[in-house]
Design a protein around this nucleic acid. Sequence first.
DNA 1: GTCTATACGTTGATAGAC
DNA 2: GTCTATCAACGTATAGAC
Lengths: 210, 210
Amino acid sequence: MNGVATTPARNDPVTALLQSAEAVFALKGLSGSTTAQIAQHAGVPKATLHYHFRTKEMLYLQVLQSVFTEWYQAAASFDQEDDPARALAGYVRVKMELSRRRPKGSKVWAQEIISGAPHLRTLLQGEVKPWMDGRVARIRQWMDEGRIVTLQPEILLFMIWSVTQHYADFESQIRLLTGQSRLGRDWFAAATEEVVGLVLRSVGLLPGAV
Amino acid sequence: MNGVATTPARNDPVTALLQSAEAVFALKGLSGSTTAQIAQHAGVPKATLHYHFRTKEMLYLQVLQSVFTEWYQAAASFDQEDDPARALAGYVRVKMELSRRRPKGSKVWAQEIISGAPHLRTLLQGEVKPWMDGRVARIRQWMDEGRIVTLQPEILLFMIWSVTQHYADFESQIRLLTGQSRLGRDWFAAATEEVVGLVLRSVGLLPGAV
DNA sequence: GTCTATACGTTGATAGAC
DNA sequence: GTCTATCAACGTATAGAC
């Protein structure tokens, strides 16, 4: 192909097309990607793509939806702990693991948001917003109980999202600046624990060294 | 135009084209943007674009270079203070201010990185990397002197970049989740101080509430 | 369900008048 | 320097054979 790392195509053309679409959309976004690229990457003719997904946009929406579903399930880890340190650390670790395991999905999401989120408006308002409001209430309770410092809860969530997704979205920059050919599992594990420490200290958990 | 907020065109076609290019590239990236869109947004015929910038890619490179130059100058604030709290707080404030003032430039940069940074390889290795190495040395010194907690310095820089640029790149998501039609100056100022607090606490500066 | 062939609009870039 | 007109290449999507 053309700059797109080849992924072995599954026998199932739908699965192969979804995977290939995620890879191609991650590199060029919706409007910059072509159905020819996606089809070639999946090892099927263009017409097969248009048979299973009526339009390029339909395929794109399915990729976005799939990424969101996985993120949404991962977010459940936030609620499984009462202790703020455990809840936040767990959430950060899950998000970092998703950045490592599915960086292309994160990149598709990021480019859609950067482009003004025209295809995510309803998803953000209908599903992400209510989830966030619930988490905001919990964070506020921790603050009221004096368990974490007082701040605008949304800002904390934005920090966690931006820092963890950075390791997926800006992976090429990180690689170039740290001189790695790819972000391996060990490096990622070490970075994850550093990020956990940063996040916990940032809300006043963990003792500072000063 | 088509989803692109109209910016009044300058009399100077080159300036108008650079501004319009930044706006259009921010929405669609290099391959998703068309010279027709950029020219129309600037209020000039396509041929005028190709007269002043030989190819679409040349125009794109000038936008990227311009964004980098501004970021690089802003980064000087990092060195003007010996005290880590002042240095870090100042750097965060400058980066947040740039996210507010020039969000489109940040978005162009972000999409280029997400796409694998094919046009930024030399810039990142030749200019950003050396700058980072210098800053890493300073951070390490602060750690050795026990003024901040011990961590991988690069991770701290990545956090500052991701958190501050998030307010430019993911602005549409933030707007939808916080119910604002745009991120105004006052909201941004408040968010900036929250972020400053998060960053300072994350390295053990500022007392935690716990 | 899968493919080849193709319709038909859009694209980057230029030619050439002013 | 600026514009209108134009072109060859490429884009999405479909028709219709197997």
